[in-house]
Design a protein around this nucleic acid. Structure first.
Length: 877
RNA sequence: GAGCCAUUAGCUCAGUUGGUUUAGAGCACUAGCUUGACAGGCUAGGGGUCAUAGGUUCAAAUCCUAUAUGGCUCACCA
């Protein structure tokens, strides 16, 4: 066999095995008799490149899927991307602009051609990157929210909801993104505190020499004012009934109205009303029948209705308005002020409340079964604290604005009749025509006479169908794939899209297949840097995931991501995490090298210490498998990983291998060797969901004719009955070994120098591991005595007294001091136990079992104290 | 402003219906190791009055009430 390198080099190995898995189609699934295990990927943006959040998200999914596959389930993980209307359109517009092309000069069709080109060029990148991470997706099933099946599904659902009366069109105040020039939903607006100014502006009262002062943060909207409002209970303004005021700059005469919406405490108690540009003003405007003057163009510049500053941007207009007001002497004062400003999630531009015609989905009834499903536990949200958040949003849900004024996306299938605002809704143009003919009774009507709505649908209006549509469950609810794979199992995503996506998928699940879309929602944390800042391109605090994989290996990065990612908690990323993962891979690699390089001698007997170690490790592995299974069931993935990590590093490498390791350049017996390989294979299996690449590499070295050709196809190990007594005895042994090692270190005795150990046994001494102790600490002899030897260092394990005989190295005073410290601790402990037991109420009320434990503690402590006292006495002699 | 969640070692977190020795892990830290698998390592070790103040209980990190601090969600006052 060729030399195995001392350092594990992940790069070539990972490339080799991923190719092998894909070539053999191991990740592909077809329906069969087995129980399915199904996850759908949260589709990343087609515009995106892999970032740290994806790494975490997909690592978790891959761990779950790989383990499910090993548990014998028919596992499928469906990959795909979404079309990300706003983000993609923005990128394409920007690209065109860099080529000197203005979007507005293109027809819709021409623009879409560019967008598709762009998508074909960039759309696959992120999925290719996921392969580097080891993602075991069924690539044959890759979907895109705008491919044929998914698009048709979206249109069918739109038509169906429209026909059910759940979709309506209407003028509403929406959140307008002036940069993307589209409406966005409430969920897409992020409010943050920003420093701004509060302007106090004087409005002249008509036919009086008096002024009324209003406070505003947006003086440019004065141009759209149609009233000034005060609270009807405010004594300061009672005299203003039926009065009018003059809007500055324009000298427009508007009424003073009275509405209890106005907070008397705030500002001046007078509120200017601009119904076209503020949601509250809009509602007040409706109540008081006010005129609504829209002063903005779609791009945020002022239009003709503003009369002045026409064509200027809204922020420039603000400056100009203030200057003008100052010129007119109408600014009373300007204060610094902090308020919440809403910005578009996609473009970060300040959201402009705008009245416009949009399409909405009525949510009130749709959410009901979705609320119940989570309430009843039919769907679990992990961690559970998000159940509240979900509930709260659902209870207060508002109608969903589903139209976007963009071209890239699913065009709304509403067709207007010629010269009319009347429309028909249909899945295809042909069907639309048919409906139009029915309505108009005009049989000469042609498709070209109809005008399709210009808007597209919100991207989430397609991704909310994802778990259904990836199996074609909207168009063909009876197809075998859908019947077999739906509902899916675990949805893994970040809490930030709980409403955007998760809640809406649940709604769609109960509206269409009338079944939950998934059973568990596992919400993982957000990847942040060490300073708890979210990773972002603009901050430049995010490492490039592919660089990390290159540097630490995909296995290393996966371990790094998982190690500190408890459910729902933030993950504070640091390079030390994948480094720890890489070091672990190296540890595994070297353990393997050690075993692989041993020479096997069939003629030698298995040494007794090896026989015992083999027995113990078997018990330990069995016990640990149960722990890991439980942790998986509870979605405690980072803990499951840590359990495997310690099993491998501490139990297998640090203890087991050290025990069975033959002397330098001596061969190992064939029995221990074979058993060790079997254990190593089990460990590789336990590791493989987390570190699939190194696990496969080792599997290929170790597999025999009875094993599967790839670890991907192998079965998750089954835990046989553990032997807790043996494990307990081993722990005692480990304690003794550690004590002896500490003595060597303390007294500067090299490992090579043999020592003699004497033991005074008390009750329940087991000699099972004595040979292990002897080997690990290089003892000449172990002997049992009744008298404390002189000139020895002592320690206590489980009330057995251990003495290492040392002729010249004993510092009696130091020994006494050490034992006195131990005595002090024991006495303190005894004291606390005594306090409990002497408490009558405790003895009377506590369960017998608890009292029993306390009595045992007492007895143990007393025994220990008397031993320690004797030892001090002996030393003082 | 309303609601929810958290606060345990330097850092990140466990601690499962209150009782397994006066609290555990990983990383970091300290000391000692040219030990033939591994310095990406080995061995040993230090480190916490469980945010604060009360309360319930025989018994509290764990239950209750306040307070403080941090976070999340929703709403929003110009």
């Amino acid at each position: 066999m060729k030399e195995i390198p001392a350092k594990y080099e992940a790069r070539d190995i990972e490339k080799k095995w991923y190719q092998y898995w894909v070539d053999n189609n191991y990740f592909h699934s077809e329906p069969d008799d087995r129980e399915p295990y199904v996850n759908v990927i949260p589709p990343p943006n087609v515009t995106g490149v892999l970032h740290m959040g994806h790494m975490l998200n997909n690592t978790i999914q891959d761990v779950l899927v790989r383990r499910a596959r090993m548990l014998g389930k028919n596992a499928v993980w469906v990959p795909g991307t979404d079309h990300a209307s706003i983000a993609t359109e923005a990128k394409v517009v920007a690209k065109l602009k860099s080529e000197g092309i203005d979007k507005n000069t293109l027809s819709r069709e021409e623009f879409l051609e560019h967008a598709w080109d762009w998508t074909e060029k960039h759309g696959g990148i992120i999925l290719e990157q996921l392969k580097k991470l080891g993602a075991s997706c069924d690539w044959d099933r890759t979907c895109f929210t705008m491919d044929e099946t998914r698009s048709k599904s979206v249109l069918r659902v739109f038509v169906d909801l429209y026909e059910k009366g759940l979709i309506y069109r209407g003028v509403r105040m929406v959140n307008w993104d002036t940069q993307a020039q589209t409406a966005v939903s409430d969920e897409e607006v992020i409010y943050t505190e920003e420093n701004s100014k509060l302007y106090y502006v004087k409005y002249k009262i008509q036919d009086e020499d008096n002024y009324l002062v209003i406070a505003t943060t947006r003086p440019e909207t004065i141009l759209g004012d149609t009233a000034v409002c005060v609270n009807p209970d405010d004594p300061r303004f009672k005299h203003l009934k039926d009065k009018k005021v003059i809007v500055p700059i324009l000298d427009r005469v508007v009424p003073v109205i009275f509405d209890s919406y106005v907070d008397m405490e705030f500002g001046t108690g007078c509120l200017k009303i601009t119904p076209a540009h503020d949601i509250n003003d809009y509602e007040i405007g409706i109540r008081h029948n006010l005129e609504s003057i829209d002063i903005f163009n779609d791009d945020g510049t002022l239009n003709k209705s503003a009369q002045v500053f026409v064509g200027e941007d809204r922020f420039k207009a603000r400056k100009l308005a203030v200057e003008k007001l100052e010129e007119l002497g109408l600014i009373e004062k300007i204060e610094d002020y902090t308020n919440k400003v809403g910005r578009s999630e996609r473009t970060n531009s300040v959201i402009e409340p705008k009245l416009s015609m949009q399409w909405f989905l009525k949510m009130e009834d749709l959410v009901k079964p979705a609320i119940k499903a989570v309430e009843d536990g039919e769907i679990n949200i992990i961690p559970g604290k998000f159940k509240n958040v979900y509930r709260h949003w659902m209870d207060n849900v508002r109608d969903w604005c589903i139209s976007r004024q963009l071209w890239w996306g699913h065009r709304i299938p509403a067709y207007y009749l010629p010269n009319s605002n009347e429309f028909v809704v249909a899945e295809t143009e042909e069907q639309a025509l048919q409906k139009a003919v029915e309505i108009t009774k005009n049989t000469n009507l042609k498709i070209s006479d109809l005008r399709q709505d210009n808007d597209v649908l919100d991207t989430w209006f397609s991704s909310w169908l994802w778990p259904i549509s990836v199996f074609d469950g909207i168009l063909k609810p009876e197809n075998p794939d859908f019947k077999y794979y739906y509902p899916t199992n675990d949805l893994v995503t970040a809490p930030e899209i709980l409403f955007f996506w998760v809640a809406r998928m649940i709604i769609a699940g109960y509206e269409y297949p009338k079944q939950k879309p998934f059973t568990n929602v596992y919400l993982h944390g957000i990847v942040r840097d060490k300073l708890r800042r979210k990773m972002s391109k603009s901050l430049g605090n995010s490492p490039d995931p592919l660089d990390l994989i290159d540097k630490y290996g995909a296995d290393g990065v996966r371990v790094g991501m998982l190690l500190c990612s408890p459910a729902g908690g933030d993950l504070l990323y640091d390079d030390s995490l994948p480094e720890q993962g890489r070091n672990f891979a190296n540890k595994i690699w070297n353990a393997f090298r050690l075993i692989k390089n041993w020479e096997i001698d069939k003629n030698i007997q298995q040494p007794e210490h090896s026989k015992i170690a083999v027995e113990w490790l078997d018990a330990k592995i069995n016990e640990t498998i149960e722990v890991i299974n439980k942790q998986f069931d509870d979605f405690r993935l980072s803990e499951a990983l840590m359990t495997v990590y310690k099993l491998f590093w501490d139990d297998f490498s640090a203890w087991y291998l050290e025990i069975i390791k033959p002397e330098y350049q001596k061969p190992i017996d064939s029995k221990t060797y074979a058993q060790s390989i079997e254990y190593f294979k089990k460990l590789a299996l336990l590791l493989s969901p987390f570190m699939p690449f190194i696990a496969e590499e080792l599997w290929q070295f170790m597999k025999n004719d009875n094993d599967t050709e790839s670890i991907v196809l192998a079965k998750w190990p089954i835990s046989e009955k553990g032997n807790s007594k043996l494990i307990d005895e081993f722990n005692t042994c480990a304690d003794v070994v550690a004590n002896i090692r500490a003595i060597r270190q303390d007294k500067n005795i090299p490992q090579k120098e043999k020592l003699n150990l004497q033991i005074i046994r008390h009750d329940n001494y087991s000699d099972k591991f004595d040979l292990v102790i002897k080997k690990l600490t290089n003892l000449e002899t172990i002997s049992f005595v009744n008298e404390k030897p002189e000139m020895a260092v002592s320690f206590l394990v489980k009330n057995h007294e251990y003495f290492i005989l040392l002729e010249n190295l004993i510092d009696k005073d130091a020994e006494i001091k050490k034992i006195e410290e131990e005595l002090k601790y024991a006495e303190g402990f005894l004291n606390s136990v005594n306090k409990k037991l002497s408490n009558e109420k405790f003895v009377a009320n506590a369960p017998e079992k608890v009292i029993e434990i306390e009595r045992k503690k007492l007895a143990d402590a007393e025994a220990k104290i008397s031993i320690l006292k004797e030892q001090i006495q002996a030393l003082k002699k």
